[in-house]
Every structure is written in structure tokens, then in C-alpha cells.
Write a protein that binds this DNA or RNA. Structure first.
Lengths: 119, 119
DNA sequence: GGCATATTCAACCAAATGGTTGACGAATGA
DNA sequence: TCATTCGTCAACCATTTGGTTGAATATGCC
């Protein structure tokens, strides 16, 4: 667990800023150019560019330059380790990644039958 | 989602430090006094006391004074919102925040009966 | 070529962070 | 009572963070 310590530092640190989380949410919808990412925010393009750099170094997004525009793409896999780390704490009983996956599988195959006591 | 933004700031920020994550891991084993928490670290008691303050303000631990010793206790529920936020990304993709919330609701109300096909 | 667009770089700044030390208050126990 | 133990407070320090501005570097288009 200690070996991934530095990566966890970087991931959690990246997630600790509301602007960066908002950017991730935007990218959930679709890939975006840097300028378009910056548009809704009331801060300079440079600031957003820095935020994107941080997200990129954390592996939470990837950036690919095509022509003069740089496309930003969500990389959700990077959240996995952090997520798993969190699962190792208490609520493990309640929020169990594994159980959730089974739940999803059951729900996808069996429709709403997967919910035990829905009301 | 925006409403819990500030709490997420605090939670992720608290988790972004390796010392604090180590403390949480220690508390996973058992409740501990401040001095005992500090013992394995090569830093001052004051520094650890500050870390504990940060964890406490984030709701990740609680502290109860009994006599002259202050006991620290893990509060894993606080990880829940952050965990849910992270689940909305990840391999579950957009689909499944909704399914995940159903899953949580079902699991919380139904206890371990909520697991569709446990083996 | 020359201008507009997209993005980053460099330098700077204020505030927050993670640490230190020394003094302090409050409970314990000889 | 008096020394000891537990923990925090206050002040300080270096580094990092999150932002700014203005200049620079590509690239695309007429």
C-alpha cells in the first residue's frame, strides 16, 4: 500500500480542487479543447491550462494535440487505485466495489430484478 | 453535486497527504491516543496533532478526551461522499451513478441481503 | 506573407501548507 | 505538593499552490 503512496498523493491532490473536479465533470460529457474547457470559468486561460497540466500529470486526463488545438480526454481508470484505497476503509461493508459490479451484472442481465426490496 | 463541493475539497485535501493516510490506516486497526499515533513518525507531536486536527475537521476521524488522553477513532462514513463522487467516473461511466445510488440505497436498507448473487 | 487563433512559458504575487521550537494548561500520581 | 505526562497554542519558517499578466510559439487561413 505504501508503494502507491506517491501516486495517491498526486491523485487526491488533483481532486482536491473544485475547478479541477468541475473540469473532470465536463469531460465526462465529451472530449474538449483547452479553450472550450476554459470558457465557463471566470479565470484566465493560463490558469485552466495549469489545472489541465495537473490533471494530466495525475493521469486523470490525457491530452492530444491535433493541429493547433489540444484535445482533453477523461481517463477514468486513474481513479481506480484511489477508489480502491478508499474502499479499504470501513464503509467497505456498505460500498463494496465488487458487490457493486455483481449488482450491475445482475441488473444488466436481469433488469430490475436485482433490487432486493425496492419500494 | 456542486453543493457538496466544499466538503469534497476538504476530504480530498485531507487524503492528499501520506502521513494522514498512514494515520487513517493505523486507526483502521484500533482507536489510539494522540501520542501513540505520533510514535512511529519522525516528526514532532505538534505536527501529528495538526494532522489529526485536519482529519478531524474533515470528519474522517473523531476525537474524544478521556482524562488526559485524547482518543482518536476512524470515522469511515466520511469517505462515502468522496467515494460516490469517484464512482460517477471510472469504469462505470455515466450510466451508473444512478445504478450505484440504487445499489447503495438497497444495500443500506437491506443489509447483506442486498447482494444479488453472493457466493 | 501576414494575421488571427490556440496554447504555453516566464515572472511574479498572495495565501495556504507542512513543518519546527518553546511555552503553556490540564490531568495523573508519587 | 510537585514533578510528569498528554496535548495544544503561538510564533515562526520554507515551500507549494492557485492565480495574474505579458510575451512567445505554433498552427491555420486568406
Amino acid at each position: 500500500m505504501a508503494c502507491m503512496s506517491e501516486q495517491l498523493d498526486i491523485t487526491f491532490q488533483a481532486l482536491a480542487d473544485p475547478t479541477r473536479r468541475a473540469i473532470l465533470s465536463m469531460l465526462l460529457e465529451d472530449d474538449m479543447a483547452v479553450t472550450d474547457v476554459a470558457e465557463p470559468f471566470e479565470m484566465s486561460l493560463t490558469a485552466i491550462s495549469k489545472h489541465l497540466g495537473i490533471l494530466s500529470r495525475a493521469g486523470l486526463i490525457s491530452q492530444e494535440r491535433r493541429g493547433r488545438v489540444k484535445w482533453c480526454k477523461l481517463e477514468p481508470d486513474a481513479l481506480r487505485d484511489a477508489s480502491i484505497w478508499m474502499q479499504s476503509f470501513g464503509q467497505f461493508e456498505a460500498v463494496n466495489l465488487d458487490a457493486f459490479e455483481k449488482f450491475l451484472a445482475a441488473e444488466l442481465s436481469g433488469g430490475d430484478a436485482a433490487l432486493p426490496n425496492e419500494d
